[in-house]
Structure formats: structure tokens, C-alpha cells
């Protein structure tokens, strides 16, 4: 296990710049924290998970798929360096693992893997949560994990790429830290974890009546934020922009909270109300995905609850569901 002093961070990251296109949590002028370029703003590794989903690096809100000029199809040029993205909390890593599977399954998504392939992932954990709280380590699912032990970063690699990345860092002076990892991970049974499992069981047992969804749906303003902020939401819409010179096809994040998402060409919509759409969004993650993928596809990152202007992110809805129908 290696270590990194906080005052060595900048030098370490700068040393990677020739080979890697680095992204990490930064603090923007108004106090918003996002994953961005180290040169744009001071880095900010401590605190809650950043607001935007870190998976946006591989699946951005809008991306060009290809352009057609005089019948010739051209794809966007590959990046000159692979991405190294630091800032995935353990729950974000679970989300990434899930969408990696999703985009690879069946018809592999070229556009996603064009950026994802060869990229390195850095996890963040330790006492760097909000107000110094503990984020249990992931212990895998990334190339390298940075664990804040309150005075320095313990750095551990889980892949060959990870080993190369941190080869030049010194070994930690406290080897017992390595044993701490599994212990810490086991230590914190998460209330939300129990809650979401409970909600999932209720849904799968058909114990949640339509009236509940009508109540919740009445509070949805169809902002789409819950979908756009969610690292395991993978739906997109496709558009063509035609001009005299070329046609450009791009895709953008879509949302199942929108009426147009499921509307049939004839105008009928099998999910024609907010109630049905909200039910679908939650049902997808808590009931349908467990059947298809063997796991609930909400990893409790908390983003939909932070972004929803009316307080009906998945954790709030699960709490209400369990309170009313358990």
C-alpha cells in the first residue's frame, strides 16, 4: 500500500498529465463541486459525492455519434490520451460496474466504450465524507483507491494499470492500514441499504397500490433531474441535425419521466400519467433490474434525492413506501 501526503497531491497529479487526461473533483467559484480538469479550479476531494454523475465522462449529456458529409460517415476522433478519473465513491463504482455491464451486454455500445476503454478509475473513500465522516472503502471495482486516513491518502492499486499509476509513490509507513479495509467495509450497515431492499421486496410482492403512485406522481414536475443525475440511468434520445453541408447524429440523455419517452406514434401512451411514469422509474430500478441483472440498480448514491426539486428522489419514495405499506 502506498501513501500520498496532501501537499504532494498536485505534484502527483501533474506527473500523470503527459500520459493521462486527468479529471478529479474540483471546487467551482460558487461552491459547486464537480468532476473536472485540475487546471480549471482547485481540487476538492473531501465532501459528499459530487453533484453530477461521474459516469458522465463516458456517457455525456450530449455526444456526437457520427457526421455524414457527401455520403461519407465520420466518427468523432479518438482522444489523444486515455482518461483517468478520480472521484468515484464506492457507491459510484458500483454504478459504473453496473453500466459497464449494461453497455457491453448484447449489442455493445461503441460510443460508450470509445471513451471507457483504456480509461483508469480512481476511487475515493475514508474519512473524507461530509464533515469528515467515514466512507467505507470499496476494496475493488477501480484501478486505484485513495483512502483518507485523516492525515494522508493511503493509495492501493487493484489492477495492472493502477500499479503503474502509483508506481512512483512511497510505501505507507503504517502497513496495518491494509488490514483495516475489509473491517471498515463491514462495519457500517447502511440504513438506506435496508430501506431500499425493503422497498424492492414490497414492489416485487405487489404490495404498493396505484394510489400511492398517484400521490407521488402529483408531486413530480417532470424536470427529469432524477434520471439525468442518476449514474445507472442509461436511456438516451437520438437527433439528426441537417444543414446544407452535413448531417450530424447525436444522442442526449433522455428521461422516463417524460410523456414522449413512451408515447406511441399514434399518440397513445401506455405510461400516460406522472403516476405511471414515476412508478415505472422506481419499479425499473427496484423490481425489473433485479430480475434481469440479479441486483437492484440503485446503489444509493443519493443524487436523485439531492436534485429532485420536490423531494421525491428514490430514497424519499422508498421511505414513504415502507412507512405506508410495510
Amino acid at each position: 500500500m502506498k501513501m500520498l501526503h496532501p501537499d504532494q497531491l498536485d505534484r502527483f497529479f501533474a506527473s500523470l498529465a503527459p500520459t493521462w487526461e486527468l479529471r478529479l473533483p474540483i471546487l467551482l467559484p460558487d461552491g459547486t463541486r464537480v468532476i473536472g480538469c485540475p487546471n480549471d479550479a482547485p481540487h476538492s476531494l473531501h465532501g459528499a459525492p459530487v453533484a453530477g454523475k461521474p459516469t458522465a465522462a463516458f456517457f455525456p449529456q450530449q455526444s456526437t455519434l457520427f457526421t455524414v458529409t457527401d455520403g461519407a460517415i465520420e466518427e468523432p476522433p479518438p482522444a489523444d490520451r486515455p482518461l483517468f478519473i478520480v472521484g468515484f465513491h464506492p457507491r459510484d463504482l458500483a454504478c459504473l460496474r453496473f453500466i459497464d455491464r449494461f453497455f457491453a451486454d448484447g449489442c455493445r455500445d461503441d460510443c460508450y466504450f470509445r471513451v471507457r476503454h483504456g480509461a483508469a478509475i480512481g476511487g475515493l473513500s475514508g474519512y473524507c465524507g461530509p464533515a469528515g465522516s467515514l466512507i467505507p472503502p470499496a476494496g475493488g471495482d477501480c484501478d486505484v483507491e485513495f483512502f483518507w486516513d485523516r492525515s494522508s491518502w493511503l493509495v492501493i492499486a487493484y489492477s495492472a494499470t493502477g500499479n503503474t499509476l502509483i508506481a512512483d509513490l512511497p510505501e505507507t509507513a503504517a502497513p496495518e492500514a491494509a488490514e483495516l479495509f475489509p473491517q471498515l467495509a463491514a462495519e457500517l450497515p447502511d440504513e438506506n441499504e435496508l430501506l431500499i431492499r425493503h422497498a424492492s421486496a414490497l414492489l416485487r410482492a405487489n404490495r404498493v397500490p396505484d394510489l400511492f403512485w398517484a400521490d407521488i406522481g402529483d408531486r413530480c414536475i417532470a424536470c427529469t433531474g432524477c434520471n439525468l443525475a442518476c449514474p445507472t440511468c442509461t436511456c438516451f434520445g437520438v437527433q439528426d441535425w441537417r444543414s446544407a453541408q452535413k448531417t450530424e447524429r447525436s444522442r442526449m440523455w433522455d428521461s422516463c419521466q417524460l410523456d414522449g419517452f413512451m408515447r406511441e406514434a399514434g399518440g397513445h401512451n401506455p405510461l400516460g400519467s406522472e403516476a405511471e411514469r414515476t412508478r415505472r422509474r422506481i419499479h425499473h430500478k427496484l423490481a425489473a433490474d433485479p430480475e434481469k441483472w440479479g441486483e437492484i440498480s440503485c446503489f444509493l448514491c443519493g443524487r436523485c434525492d439531492s436534485v429532485c426539486p420536490t423531494g421525491i428522489g428514490i430514497i424519499s419514495v422508498a421511505r414513504e413506501m415502507v412507512a405506508r405499506f410495510a
Binding site: 460558487d30 461552491g31 459547486t32 463541486r33 464537480v34 453533484a51 453530477g52 458522465a56 455525456p60 449529456q61 450530449q62 414536475i221 417532470a222 424536470c223 427529469t224 433531474g225 440523455w253 428521461s255 417524460l258 439531492s306 436534485v307 429532485c308 426539486p309
Partner: peptide, 17 residues
């Protein structure tokens, strides 16, 4: 794309469609 300001006293991290 866009990313809402999380500190804005107006929108507090949210946006409409």
C-alpha cells in the same frame, strides 16, 4: 450539457426540464 449550481439560493441544485 449543463450542471445545476448546487449552492444557488434560487434553484438549490435543481432545474426544470
Amino acid at each position: 450539457g449543463v450542471e445545476p449550481s448546487t449552492t444557488s439560493p434560487v434553484n438549490r441544485g435543481g432545474l426544470c426540464v
